[in-house]
């Protein structure tokens, strides 16, 4: 009997010895998260991603495996982020006509919006007495994660804190855009998409694709331009100031 117990206890380790366990867990949590999201009647403050992430965290905490075991396997899934980013060229190309017609207002407003997205948070944290390491981790918070990670390393911030800041920002941006656009009576999917992409990086872009294809295309545009602009300007400004 105790032998059976020992074998049973070894099952999670066997599962997570290869990436299959982590990938299976992520997929299962994702579909369960989407289903719970529907059951909870689509709460905007709690996107399916968060529900699913909480489920995964709970499973990792309950099973005799660590976050490192999970991360090792999930890295295989995250590898697909590269090709998925390239695939965003399709919605981008489909909206090229719209974007071309609007290039002037976009070029005028986007750099200012991207700058403000970084400045507000850094300024508030600085006023509240946060140390430079924290400031450096917060500055790239509105940028898509591959760019943000290389930026925060260059500025001397913490990678883990940055990931947390990215997610908090993404959720706040989704909630903020939904709430403020209703309050400001904005229904234009292009505008909502741009605001989601500039402020809420990949999380905002995912949300924009749920609204419509057009909003998603403008969100990918906002996300890429904010990423490129911040990647160029932030290190320059940071080193001038510090």
């Amino acid at each position: 009997m105790s032998e059976l117990g020992a074998t049973l206890a070894a099952v999670p380790q066997t599962w997570f010895a290869t990436p299959i366990g982590a990938i299976g867990l992520t997929l299962a949590a994702y579909f369960l998260g989407v289903r719970l999201f529907k059951l909870m009647r689509h709460p905007s403050w709690c996107p399916p991603v968060i529900i699913a992430a909480l489920l995964i965290a709970a499973v990792i905490a309950l099973l005799p495996i660590g976050i490192d075991d999970y991360n090792r396997g999930a890295a295989w899934l995250m590898l697909l982020l590269g090709p998925a980013t390239v695939a965003l060229a399709v919605p981008l190309y489909q909206q090229l006509g719209q974007i071309r017609a609007l290039w002037k207002p976009i070029v005028l407003t986007l750099p200012l919006s991207a700058t403000l997205a970084a400045c507000y948070a850094v300024l508030i944290a600085w006023l509240l007495g946060a140390p430079p390491e924290v400031l450096a981790s917060l500055a790239p918070k509105s940028v898509t994660s591959p760019i943000a990670l290389s930026l925060t390393q260059e500025l001397g911030g913490s990678t883990a804190l940055l990931m947390g800041a990215l997610m908090t920002t993404g959720i706040t941006a989704i909630f903020g855009v939904e709430w403020l656009s209703r309050w400001m009576r904005i229904r234009d999917p292009r505008l909502i998409g741009l605001a989601l992409g500039i402020n809420g990086h990949a999380l905002g872009t995912v949300r924009a694709f749920e609204i419509s294809h057009q909003a998603g295309a403008f969100a990918s545009l906002g996300m890429s331009l904010t990423g490129a602009f911040t990647a160029i300007v932030l290190p320059l400004v940071w080193h001038l100031w510090a």
């Binding site: 997929l27 949590a29 994702y30 699913a52 992430a53 999930a74 995250m78 998925a84």
Partner: peptide, 18 residues
């Protein structure tokens, strides 16, 4: 692939709790 984006960023979200 684009429909999968949400799934692909989830492992990063899990890490915050830890």
């Amino acid at each position: 692939l684009i429909a999968m984006l949400a799934l692909l960023i989830m492992p990063g979200v899990v890490e915050i709790f830890f």
